[in-house]
Design a protein around this nucleic acid. Structure first.
Length: 570
DNA sequence: GATCATACGATCGTCACTATTCATAGTGA
């Protein structure tokens, strides 16, 4: 049978969710969550491990080991099946509603028969929720607001990273077809937008039928919505749509421009073509009915008098004017990144030891990393107080001796308190090589208060950079509201940098804010916020956002060699 | 459910904030 670690982890996570709303023992729930995490992070496939090796994993005892064995052998688990039968599927989703946890969800279910978002809505309409034990008028009001906001939300777009995972599988599958000469994924995916609504797949082929068949046989496909001569559309099990277009070699470049977009970019290009007495469409660039370009993008841009424009810039935010003048930015490249200035270890909520992180950084060829664990305000992750921070410095010294080729900077991710003060005293901060200051709670402060809070932190001379400045979590949490221009002004004045956090659900600052920062003369830091060795790879996503924001290597502090970086500190 | 270790039974990351029960349960980071 065989199951991937991710699949096993998911079963355990679902069991934990279902046990939780069933009101099962909290520690049992946590045991399943821990196990899910262990399995997910295990570097070798559990299907290839012996039972005794599995038993040795931390948090996996006799019982869970045998459950894993059952899963690998049969692909399912009686406990999971039984719980799925007992617990309404929509009930688990209610745990994600702010203000609702296992206890309240259970109460809603037992007292009012609430099973999912819809029945919750009816319960709110018919009243009575506020009378439930543990519920009151305030909470009822919050729930109403939340549900109303859900209603006007546009359908969810996938995070770039999730789209990328689908693309990787899709390409692996399609490449097996010999009918495909060339394949490119266009659309917002190619422009590296932080979220992707659907996939536009462009294929060069002389056998459109065979290419369509290849797409339709992709295992994730749930439904074929359209099938024509050159266009096929399918919907995947997760609701994501893929549009396939088969084009000829001579039109490939024109189609690539057309389907990469953005729409505004395309409109602007066609206007330029018109001005020159040309016609641009998805098949090519024509003069008096005769094709003069179309096979590749460069040729079309050239014929329009433009330099080739990187997809990340194609938003009609001035890139066409810049291309006309030969003044396109020389965008930041992945290879420009020399160090990572935001990382965590097992001293707080990291999942790997300082040594493991240092070795991973070395393996990736990084020149330096800042070890920036949390400060004490984040009690849940056992945030560092001055005493433990100093203890960490001793370990940094020891690990540095073992891993000499990556410079380990003594850092902190210090919490910005509600009033803008910092969670560690200045004399301690003064001893550090690198200080990231971040907001982790009370993210929904009024805009004025949040602006003041950030500015006070920026004015602290020890702060090098503000971490994940808006606090947004893609599809989960809105960015906090503050006056970005004012914050940028003070950053510029104080020489404080802003972070582009590369975690796939943060990407914070986003592309537009990167551009604003650049225009305001504020330096950026692109970091991964790595909690695990494999997180270092996420730098790719931060770099993409920065590229979308016209960022060049010179705009980013951690493209510099170490000595230059330290000199540039304020 | 795992772990530790008085080898059975206790312990398992903490703390601040919110709403309601105004001292405490529930939630969230």
């Amino acid at each position: 049978m065989g199951m991937t670690n991710e699949q096993i982890a998911r079963v355990f996570d679902e069991i934990a969710d279902m046990l939780e709303v069933s009101g099962d023992d909290f520690f049992r729930v946590r045991a399943y969550r821990n196990a899910a995490r262990t399995v997910r992070e295990c570097a070798t496939s559990l299907s290839t491990m012996t039972p005794s090796q599995i038993r040795e994993l931390p948090g996996i005892g006799e019982d869970l080991a045998s459950k894993i064995e059952t899963l690998i052998k049969t692909g399912e688990l009686p406990l999971h099946r039984e719980l799925s039968r007992k617990v309404p599927p929509g009930l688990v989703a209610l745990l994600r509603v702010p203000g609702l946890g296992p206890k309240r969800v259970r109460a809603l279910n037992q007292e009012l028969g609430v099973r999912d978002l819809n029945t919750l809505k009816s319960a709110l309409e018919s009243g009575g929720i506020a009378k439930l034990k543990g519920f009151g008028p305030k909470l009822e009001q919050h729930l109403r607001q939340y549900l109303a906001q859900l209603d006007n939300k546009t359908p969810e777009r996938l995070r770039y990273v999730d789209a990328a995972a689908i693309v990787a599988q899709l390409i692996g599958h399609m490449k097996k077809s010999s009918a495909i000469v060339r394949l490119e994924v266009a659309g917002s995916f190619r422009r590296k937008k932080d979220t992707v609504g659907d996939l536009d797949v462009l294929v060069e082929s002389t056998e459109p039928e065979a290419v369509a068949d290849a797409l339709i046989s992709f295992p994730m496909v749930k439904e074929v919505v359209a099938r024509g001569e050159t266009k096929t559309s399918v919907i995947l099990q997760n609701g994501f749509q893929i549009d396939l277009r088969v084009v000829s070699r001579q039109s490939f470049g024109a189609a690539l421009i057309y389907f990469t977009g953005s729409k505004a970019h395309g409109v602007h290009l066609r206007r330029i073509a018109q001005r020159k007495g040309l016609l641009l469409n998805e098949y090519g660039l024509y003069r008096e009915g005769k094709m003069i370009a179309g096979q590749d993008e460069e040729g079309i841009y050239r014929a329009l008098g433009l330099a080739w424009i990187p997809p990340e810039l194609r938003e009609d935010r001035g890139e066409i004017e810049a291309a006309e003048l030969g003044r396109l930015p020389r965008l930041l490249e992945l290879e420009d990144m020399r160090g990572d200035l935001h990382t965590h270890t097992t001293w707080t909520d990291g999942r790997a030891t300082l040594e493991e992180m240092a070795l991973a950084a070395s393996a990736r060829g990084l020149e330096y990393i800042a070890v920036t664990d949390h400060s004490r305000r984040l009690a849940m992750v056992h945030g560092l107080d001055p005493k433990r921070l100093r203890e960490q410095w001793r370990e940094i010294e020891k690990v540095q001796a073992k891993v000499p080729n990556v410079k380990l900077l003594r850092g902190i991710e210090v919490d910005i308190m509600e009033d803008g003060s910092l969670d560690l005293p200045n004399d301690v901060l003064a001893e550090l090589d690198w200080v990231v200051a971040s907001v982790h709670y009370k993210l929904n402060q009024a805009p004025n208060a949040m602006t003041k809070r950030l500015i006070k932190a920026i004015r602290n001379p020890h702060v090098d950079v503000i971490g994940h400045p808006t606090g947004r979590l893609i599809n989960q949490r809105e960015p906090s509201n503050f006056d970005l221009d004012e914050v940028l002004r003070v950053c510029r004045e104080e020489g404080c940098a802003l972070e582009v956090n590369s975690q796939p659900d943060r990407l914070d600052l986003n592309d537009v804010a990167c551009l604003s920062a650049k225009r305001a003369g504020v330096r950026l830091v692109i970091s991964t916020d790595a909690h695990h060795p494999r997180d270092f790879a996420a730098i790719e996503f931060g770099v993409s956002q920065a590229r979308r924001g016209w960022i060049e290597a010179a705009d980013v502090l951690n493209t510099r060699p170490l000595n230059e970086l330290l000199r540039l500190r304020r």
